[in-house]
Amino acid sequence: MGRAWGEMGTRVIHSLRARSRQDRVVAWVLRIALASVNVLTVLIAVGLLLKSMPILRTQSLGKLLLSSTWKPLQSQFGLLPFLSGTIATTVLAMLLAVPVCLLSAVYLAEYARSRVRNWIAPVIDLLAGIPSVVYGLWGVLVIVPAVRVLGKALGYSTTGYSLLAGATILGIMVAPIIISICTEVLRAVPTEARETALALGLTRWEVTRHVVLCSSRRGILAAVVLGFARAAGETMAVLMVVGNVPRVPSSLFAPAYPLPALIANNYGEMMSIPMYDSALMMAAFVLLVVVALFNLAARLALLRFARDEQ
């Protein structure tokens, strides 16, 4: 009897030891997995940088970024047309999207009843889930002809495949992300702040403008920056409507050629021309760095905002 108990005791201890060993092993494996995510991030940046080294050795970064001569056959890889294309489409997209998104978000956060909000949130998510080629297809079918008509009416000769068409599609595509983050940010403002202002006799809009928007401006800015970064990296939809002519765009109705479109359009031929692949990978690296920095800044701002509101 005593022996049996002893045996059982040792068995429990054994298995307990095994179990806690298993526990430690799992914890280590998970820790290593976590570290590998960070390693992977560095690896992506380093991989692209290594591929872009050949071209950086022959030409200076400043010259590559600021020259507007894009003649791969003559080894001239000025990225200025593409950088300006990206900046122009993205900034224009934000100008179109931000006011509409901000007003929508204010309505959802401050005015709408919770039933309306619960009904609209999934719909906005749906908009975010539509594949970018479908946006592109819609752009080709609807936005491009509309821009053509508008351009003709204003006296521009345009095919419709233009900066404005690209920016419009981008503006639509970033709307869901800006609206949902802004709504979240606005709703994080404590109700007491609103009630105090309402009690002072301010109208709802005045409360929104002077209290809510004012105290959440950092979060809203972060939402806009996130939208901006998303727009700068968006590829397929823009590629389909923007015209893709490697020239610094001269007007709203002129074609543009953003960086992601450049990368996507030329992968087929980049192996046959010397330095071409290196130039494209540098474009990808530049895109990665810019978008990652914007994202980082916005995320940090959102974290800080969340901490301040608590």
Partner: peptide, 18 residues
């Protein structure tokens, strides 16, 4: 978490290139 959020924001064309 911050790194993952940033990675989520990285354009898919960059992943394609990588």
């Amino acid at each position: 978490r911050l790194v993952l959020d940033v990675l989520w924001g990285v354009p898919s064309i960059v992943y394609g290139a990588f």
